[in-house]
Amino acid sequence: MVSAEEVARIIEAYPADRRFALAAMQDMQNEFNYVPEEGLEMLAEHLGCPIAQLFAMATFYKALSLTPKGKHIIKICNGTACHIRGAMNLVTGVKRELNIEPGETTEDGLFSVEIVNCVGSCALAPVMLVDGIYHNKLRVEQVPGIIDSYRAKDGEQHD
């Protein structure tokens, strides 16, 4: 759960000026994997602006989410090059493995899947990113292995 102290710490790092709204929301996204409602309320108060304005921004930017995102974010590129080279097969592969559609998060909160547009690596299409790490010229058979490696990493940390 998100604590009010944590939110306050993030928000109070910024002066009470509206132009810092996006930065503060990004920090919350990084910290909590989403922008919580309490966070928006406290930020609105701190900046002295209507919460509706922050909500407009929070729903506009794809980088911000109002519901908790998974610990690991899988981005599948569906730009032109990747699309032609079978990006949608990767989507199906990931779906088979995690049982979620793009835009959703697994129940255990470990993975979120998103479809994005060109990530600037067309020559290496199709491309999938996990937490910002590029997996290039990916074949659908490789997907389970990659996902497992993240699962295993988390397992180690838990032990």
Binding site: L40, A52, F60
Partner: peptide, 26 residues
């Protein structure tokens, strides 16, 4: 100075609404 509504989402989903589609306190 009320600021109860704003545009939310974007693209074809964009619409005017209150935050979280809840009754607005403002």
């Amino acid at each position: 100075g009320t600021g109860a509504i704003s545009t939310v989402l974007r693209g074809t989903e964009k619409r005017v609404d209150t935050p979280y589609s809840n009754p607005s306190k403002a």
